[in-house]
């Protein structure tokens, strides 16, 4: 119980200290709010523009979560195939690693040419950045099945399908969720990159527009909302993990 309170209180104290220092810094040095708005400036900009920010959060949220969802839907089966087939592994894995070294930011303009200025292009970029960590971690999880469990399954003459569904896949779940947590935050970055390159909506668009109009408090407010969106999506994955893997929270006694 005390540990729980500590887990909440200490981070809040940390944030409070930084906010106060930031506020004091902008106040004492009389910084122009275009260069660095104070926390209160950002807060009031956030309140004053809440309708815009909320409206623009929606497309960014959709792009991120759909891109991430697509990466999960395609990435997990892909990783399962690659991990279980030597031929597929040898054929596809080097290509995957090679494509991963291509900077996604550099590909983004091409994606926009293919998929237009709408949501699809952002979704595709979010998908591309989220895909890699999911595939790599899922494949690692598939290979990390404890040998004792595999031997047990073999002693019972379990079929390959039974081994997969009852042993390999559940054993890989912690890996899959670790990859998903990285992927979901990357998906938000992917969506924002897409919005930066060319868009008519989304928090990335709001940020870019506010910046070009030297409305720094609004730009910072958009940044805060983007972080909140990222934390929210991360939280959704953690929630899913708790629901799917109730044993991981069971803990030691």
């Amino acid at each position: 119980m005390i540990k729980r309170i500590e887990n909440t209180v200490y981070p809040l104290v940390g944030i409070a200290v930084i906010m106060i220092a930031w506020q004091a810094y902008t106040y004492y040095f009389g910084l122009n709010r275009i260069v660095l708005p104070s926390p209160t400036d950002i807060f009031w900009a956030s309140i004053a523009n809440w309708e815009t920010l909320l409206r623009e959060s929606w497309p960014t949220f959709l792009e991120s979560i759909l891109g991430f969802g697509l990466a999960v839907l395609v990435g997990i089966p892909f990783a399962v195939c690659v991990a279980n087939s030597r031929v597929l592994n040898l054929t596809l894995y080097p290509i995957l690693i090679a494509t991963q070294s291509v900077p996604k930011v550099a590909v983004a303009p091409i994606i926009l040419v293919w998929f237009g200025l709408g949501m699809q292009s952002k979704l595709v970029i979010a998908f591309l950045v989220a895909f890699f960590p999911i595939v790599v971690d899922t494949a690692a999880g598939m290979r990390a099945t404890p040998s004792g469990l595999l031997e047990l399954a073999r002693a019972l003459r379990a079929s390959p399908l039974q081994v997969f569904t009852k042993v390999q896949f559940p054993a890989a779940l912690p890996f899959i969720f670790a990859g998903s947590k990285v992927a979901v935050t990357l998906a938000v970055i992917g969506a924002v990159i897409g919005e930066f390159i060319g868009s008519t909506q989304g928090l990335g668009n709001t940020l870019l527009t506010a910046n070009s109009q030297l409305d720094s408090p609004l730009a910072w407010a958009a940044l805060v909302w983007l972080s909140a969106l990222g934390i929210f999506l991360f939280g959704l994955v953690v929630l899913a993990e708790r629901i799917v893997m109730p044993w991981s929270g069971a803990g030691h006694h």
């Binding site: 047990l152 003459r157 009852k166 559940p170 044993w247």
Partner: peptide, 29 residues
């Protein structure tokens, strides 16, 4: 063979299964 039962040095329980579901694993297979 299904007439055999095996116990290893490590318990080799599945962390995602409750005790009873671990015991029932062979019956599922």
């Amino acid at each position: 063979h299904e007439d055999f039962g095996v116990v290893f040095q490590q318990a080799n329980l599945m962390p995602w299964r409750t005790m009873i579901d671990n015991v029932l694993f062979p019956m599922e297979i």
